[in-house]
């Protein structure tokens, strides 16, 4: 019974998402892959390199606009700049101010292999998200790989604690999620949006997060419609998710620190990094 209700909910979300995609698909096609320009160069590889002529300053200065970086920038609209900037500041204070000491303490106490093991175990546990999205994106090879990884790591990898499958080049970890599935079916980014605690996202990926949460085993084991019925220990879902987030805090804070140190405008840097990261994930 509860399973059927769950399926209805998933179905409802998918319908909702497909309706909302239709308007955005044109925009997505307009975003040109900035690497495309280089694709035809393979044939020219045997040509003699132009190193006979010394490259002096003037040549570099007046170089033609032929390389990938002279193409218009790939950007994402940011109409909610005010909201986004507020939550960016909020997250920054929360993670870099409040949580940083805890993260540093945790990192000192907890040996690195244990933290990695816990990350592996959680990633292994949420394998259905990646599996379902491989199927939805019509990637049977990816689905088979995820399934193989899950079987090997759950058993010989002691519940996913050790990522043994990774030693096989054909069983590398994947990262498919609902946001990528929506992009696969033509939905554009929409616009940039920063959520409290979660951080950078886009309109499409926000829908994706809802889908990911629905496909997360924690939701259907302990969630509202969980398999334990009335007296299910729903809080476990939050405890486990919270523990995973805390376990990853040191990495997150490390990355934010580097970003803040290296960027002239950290807000813009994070926004661009997010969109580049997602476009790359969608491409693969």
């Amino acid at each position: 019974m509860s399973k059927r209700r769950f399926q209805h909910i998933i179905g409802f979300f998918l319908i909702l998402l497909f309706i909302s995609t239709s308007g955005c698909s044109v925009k997505n096609q307009a975003t040109k892959d900035f690497m495309e320009g280089g694709a035809n160069a393979q044939t020219g590889a045997t040509q003699p390199a132009p190193q006979a002529a010394p490259l002096d300053q003037a040549v570099v200065d007046n170089a033609p606009d032929d390389d990938e970086y002279d193409a218009p920038l790939e950007t994402i609209p940011d109409p909610l700049y005010g909201w986004n900037h507020f939550w960016y500041r909020f997250n920054d204070l929360f993670y870099m101010g409040l949580m940083r000491p805890f993260a540093i303490g945790y990192k000192t106490v907890m040996p690195e292999p244990v933290r990695t093991g816990l990350k592996n175990a959680y990633d292994n546990f949420i394998f259905p998200i990646r599996f379902v999205n491989c199927l939805l994106q019509l990637k049977p090879a990816g689905a088979a790989r995820e399934f193989g990884r899950f079987m090997i790591n759950s058993t010989f990898g002691l519940g996913g604690f050790f990522d043994l499958a990774k030693s096989d080049p054909n069983l590398q970890p994947g990262d498919e999620d609902f946001g990528q599935t929506l992009a696969y079916y033509g939905m554009g980014d929409g616009f940039y949006i920063v959520w409290p605690f979660i951080g950078p996202s886009s309109l499409r990926d926000s829908f994706g997060l809802v889908g990911d949460a629905a496909a997360n085993p924690l939701t259907y084991i302990f969630g509202l419609w969980g398999m334990y019925g009335e007296d299910n220990p729903w809080y476990w879902s939050y405890v486990i998710r919270g523990a995973d987030i805390f376990n990853r805090l040191p990495d997150k804070i490390d990355n934010l620190e580097t970003l803040k140190k290296s960027a002239i405008d950290p807000y813009a840097s994070l926004r661009d990094a997010y969109i580049q990261y997602r476009r790359n994930a969608i491409k693969n």
Binding site: L73, T75, N280
Partner: peptide, 26 residues
Amino acid sequence: DKGSWKVYDVVIEGVSMVQNYRQQFA
């Protein structure tokens, strides 16, 4: 290729460092 091969960009998990700076500088 500048006579010898030189790095002009590093791409970490799909994020081009040069591209990221270009956005900010622009």
